[in-house]
């Protein structure tokens, strides 16, 4: 399954590295990535593929949410279908 991972928060060094490390450790592939910084507010969106993931969806959510709290940003993972169904006919 594919999911959208979003990071929202104040910009600082190492956010992408932190997230990418967690994903790499769990064999989760990043298929697309985009980011912007607007007035110091950081937004990153990743499309990730959990097909060969070592951990389940729920566990990934917990791990990244916890890491987000540590570094002061909000990290969410949502099934991509929510976006597909809302924005595509």
């Amino acid at each position: 399954m594919k999911a959208i991972l979003t990071v929202l928060g104040k910009d600082k060094a190492g956010i992408i590295a932190t997230v990418a490390t967690i994903l790499a450790q769990n064999n989760i592939n990043i298929e697309d990535i985009s980011q912007t910084v607007m007035q110091g507010y950081f937004t990153m969106i990743m499309l990730v593929n959990l097909e060969n993931s070592k951990i389940g969806f729920g566990e990934l959510q917990e791990v990244v949410a916890k890491k987000g709290e540590e570094i002061g940003v909000k990290i969410m993972v949502q099934h991509e279908d929510i976006f597909n169904s809302m924005h595509r006919v």
Binding site: I4, T6, E31, D32, S34, T36, T43, I45, L47, E80, F83, N84, M86, H87, R88
Partner: peptide, 8 residues
């Protein structure tokens, strides 16, 4: 991929 503004 769904675009950024739609996700946000």
């Amino acid at each position: 991929m769904i675009n950024k503004s739609e996700i946000l």
